[in-house]
Lab assay of single mutants.
Amino acid sequence: MTEYKLVVVGAGGVGKSALTIQLIQNHFVDEYDPTIEDSYRKQVVIDGETCLLDILDTAGQEEYSAMRDQYMRTGEGFLCVFAINNTKSFEDIHHYREQIKRVKDSEDVPMVLVGNKCDLPSRTVDTKQAQDLARSYGIPFIETSAKTRQGVDDAFYTLVREIRKHKEKMSKDGKKKKKKSKTKCVIM
């Protein structure tokens, strides 16, 4: 069974824990209790493949930012979460993405942009803004509501699919490099 290491990042209060708990335990946590770091595991079937999701729910508070490099190193894919009623959390996505790329030393890291709290009427981040940002990053965008469960499975499952595509691409690139290195030079 394939294991996928997913990391949920975003500013404090955007609903990272609520999304994760909704996926794992099928219930909505409405009281806000700032996370330092929590880890969850769940076995699911995605596109006919049974897999184990190892999900790291991270601290959004700035005082825990020193811990970010460590979990970013171990993560295979990242859910970059903002709240649709919090423009600052949307603007912060850029910083999370840049930090992930720096730590992973790669421009090509599996990510999904997630606009959470889409059940709320007080939207300050337009869907088109988020779609445009995701398009500019070359990553999928999904709106979710941890409260109603809308888009929750889709967000995590899409990230797994992005990781699969990335692994497939990397193995193809690896095979191309191996083929090239088999060419021999004969000096007579």
Rank of each mutant, 00 (worst) to 15 (best):
E63V: 05
E63G: 10
Y64M: 10
Y64N: 15
Y64D: 15
Y64H: 13
Y64C: 10
Y64F: 09
Y64K: 10
S65R: 06
S65E: 14
S65C: 09
S65G: 13
A66I: 11
A66V: 11
A66R: 05
A66N: 08
A66W: 03
A66M: 08
A66L: 08
A66D: 12
M67K: 12
M67G: 13
M67V: 10
M67D: 15
M67Q: 13
R68M: 11
R68H: 13
R68K: 09
R68V: 09
R68F: 05
D69L: 01
D69M: 03
D69T: 04
D69V: 01
D69R: 05
Q70I: 08
Q70P: 11
Q70A: 06
Y71D: 13
Y71A: 12
Y71G: 13
Y71P: 11
M72D: 07
M72H: 08
M72R: 06
M72V: 07
R73A: 11
R73E: 14
R73K: 11
R73V: 06
T74Y: 10
T74H: 12
T74S: 13
T74G: 12
T74I: 08
T74F: 09
T74P: 07
G75T: 14
G75R: 08
E76H: 14
E76W: 14
E76N: 10
E76M: 14
E76G: 06
G77R: 00
G77T: 00
G77H: 01
G77N: 00
G77Q: 01
G77K: 00
G77L: 10
G77P: 00
F78T: 02
F78H: 00
F78M: 01
F78A: 02
F78Q: 00
L79Y: 00
L79S: 00
L79G: 00
C80E: 03
C80A: 05
C80W: 06
C80H: 02
V81F: 13
V81Y: 00
V81E: 03
V81C: 10
V81A: 06
V81R: 00
F82E: 00
F82I: 07
F82A: 12
F82S: 13
A83N: 15
A83L: 01
A83F: 02
A83G: 15
A83S: 11
A83I: 00
A83K: 05
A83E: 15
A83W: 03
I84A: 15
I84D: 15
I84V: 14
I84E: 15
I84Y: 15
I84L: 15
N86D: 15
N86T: 07
N86F: 02
N86G: 13
T87G: 13
T87R: 10
T87E: 15
K88S: 10
K88C: 09
S89D: 04
F90V: 14
F90L: 14
F90E: 11
F90T: 10
E91M: 06
E91I: 00
E91C: 04
E91F: 03
E91L: 02
I93A: 03
I93P: 03
H94F: 04
H94G: 02
H94W: 07
H94R: 07
H94L: 11
H94P: 02
H95E: 08
H95G: 04
H95F: 02
H95M: 02
Y96E: 03
Y96C: 09
Y96P: 02
R97V: 15
R97I: 15
R97S: 09
R97P: 05
R97N: 07
R97E: 11
R97D: 02
E98W: 05
E98Y: 01
E98G: 03
E98V: 01
E98H: 04
E98N: 03
E98Q: 07
Q99R: 08
Q99E: 12
Q99S: 09
I100K: 01
I100S: 00
I100M: 06
I100Q: 05
K101C: 07
K101I: 05
K101Y: 02
K101D: 03
K101M: 13
K101S: 06
R102W: 00
R102C: 03
V103C: 03
V103N: 09
V103Q: 07
K104F: 06
K104H: 11
K104P: 02
K104S: 09
D105K: 06
D105W: 11
D105Y: 03
D105M: 01
D105E: 13
D105T: 05
S106W: 13
S106G: 13
S106E: 13
E107D: 12
E107F: 14
E107P: 06
E107W: 14
E107H: 08
D108Q: 08
D108V: 05
D108H: 12
D108F: 10
D108C: 07
V109W: 04
V109N: 01
V109Q: 02
V109K: 03
V109C: 07
P110D: 02
P110R: 02
M111T: 04
M111C: 06
M111N: 02
M111W: 05
V112I: 13
V112C: 01
V112P: 00
V112S: 01
V112M: 03
V112G: 00
L113E: 02
L113K: 01
L113Y: 04
V114L: 10
V114E: 00
V114T: 01
V114Y: 01
V114S: 01
G115H: 04
G115W: 07
G115Y: 05
G115D: 02
G115P: 05
N116C: 15
N116F: 01
N116M: 15
K117A: 14
K117C: 15
K117N: 13
C118V: 10
C118L: 08
C118I: 11
C118D: 08
C118Y: 08
C118P: 04
C118R: 04
D119H: 03
D119V: 02
D119L: 02
D119N: 06
D119W: 02
D119F: 00
D119R: 01
L120G: 11
L120Q: 10
L120K: 06
L120A: 13
L120P: 04
P121Q: 11
P121M: 11
P121C: 06
P121K: 07
S122W: 08
S122K: 09
S122M: 07
S122V: 10
R123P: 13
R123D: 14
R123N: 13
R123G: 14
R123Y: 09
T124G: 12
T124H: 13
T124F: 10
T124S: 13
V125D: 12
V125A: 12
V125T: 13
V125H: 11
D126M: 07
D126Q: 10
D126S: 11
D126K: 05
D126T: 08
D126G: 10
